[in-house]
Design a protein around this nucleic acid. Sequence first.
DNA 1: CGGAACGTTGAGCATAATCAACGACTGTGG
DNA 2: CCACAGTCGTTGATTATGCTCAACGTTCCG
Lengths: 249, 249
Amino acid sequence: VTLEILPMSGSDPMSSLQQPARCGDCPVRNISLCGSLSDEDLLSLNKIGRRRIVRAGQIVSWEGDPANSFANIVRGVLKVTALTMDGREQIVGLLFPGDFVGQLFSDRVDLTVTAITEADLCTYSRTAFEDLLDMFPSLERLLLKRVLASLNDARDRMLTLGRKTAQERVAGFIDFIAKRLGKNGPNDVITVEIPVSRGEMADYLGLTIETISRQLTRLRAMSIIAFGRGNRECHILAAERLRLLVTPD
Amino acid sequence: VTLEILPMSGSDPMSSLQQPARCGDCPVRNISLCGSLSDEDLLSLNKIGRRRIVRAGQIVSWEGDPANSFANIVRGVLKVTALTMDGREQIVGLLFPGDFVGQLFSDRVDLTVTAITEADLCTYSRTAFEDLLDMFPSLERLLLKRVLASLNDARDRMLTLGRKTAQERVAGFIDFIAKRLGKNGPNDVITVEIPVSRGEMADYLGLTIETISRQLTRLRAMSIIAFGRGNRECHILAAERLRLLVTPD
DNA sequence: CGGAACGTTGAGCATAATCAACGACTGTGG
DNA sequence: CCACAGTCGTTGATTATGCTCAACGTTCCG
């Protein structure tokens, strides 16, 4: 997939559709930041928001660019990446529906955000959104709680990246994806569509593609997982044993 | 140093002194969260705050404990650690004067915080502090900005832990400490008192003590750093060359 | 059918971990 | 004052985990 730049302000009819947002039938109304607003207050948000579709592989915001937009994710999966000068990449966050994208209170974006799958975003001018934070304390409070939760997640990931083995990381990732996609059944066989490539798993876990592949093969040999067609459809055959590999005792 | 538990609510005259806070002559008045409040509003904070001294090695909050306090750091260095079941440790954050300690909007602490050096804290009841957030939007806004900044730091550290070599990590740490302690002169020899042990450096960087030691020896052999008495006093002889090792091109 | 992107597998290697010994500094008690 | 233990840090030898390099399969398009 060729990477493309998607300017989030201004219009770009070739690569994305812009429509006024309609909050009434929004699937993430209750899990995104909007959930903190009453139907009435939501009109203010509605007024400044635009729906936008980004294709898989499109860059939503570039490191170094001026930060002038903010968005809620309605559908799809995005990645936030940090880079070293010589090109090593680390995915520092995966974003799912209900999460938000964008640097607030800062003039410059310092992390690149890319759509992994096709995605729908509900975008706002950054400054207009900041104004809304002033107007609606409940919105700011929910944002604060979300950022605090993200910080806790980030700290969990530091433990993974600093101290866990390849096997623990990969097992933990499968478990994380299953949880994040709402498949929590502890007993039956769970089928998960892994939303990322092997390379992205590697960049998320601080490993190489080859190591990811070998660990998945290992999990398959242990009959803990199995793959369907396409290398993305993952059947979790033994969720309990999988979870045991995440944090051994 | 034997680890001790410091209950942050209730009094514990043996291990810490409790005094009413006096904000007027507070050294972190302008760099901590209090900086967002006017002298007048500060009285509200003053009323619910207590000064507390913790000794080096004391645990300030235990993972799993009820989260009922919140504090600003006035003096000293603390560490926030995450643990695996089998005892591997990762320091997920170092806290300096002006930083805050404590989990807000959550009933349970999920990370252990320990004093690395002797430290002064300005502590509040968690719920009383949360009430202040409702009363003073400027306080909440500053907190939000601080948490956003912490999240950015955490993401930087993910890149380090996931993708950097031992040499880059150790060089980066020395540079980080020098910056954090306000020694920024790019030319002259800078002397930094490293506030942590080799073991803590290892736990912060996701390495072992031995690797830390070898990398420091290597930096010494390259005449980039030198040590004074006590293994903590570090002279940075060539800040430019040090910074080159942090992110190679 | 062919090409390209993606994924798997293998062989060898390198970086950092592990295991182990030793050295330096500190405080304690004889 | 010195012997001693204890903590912390350094250095060396060896090992192992995951990386690199390379070849080969697979899937999915056109």
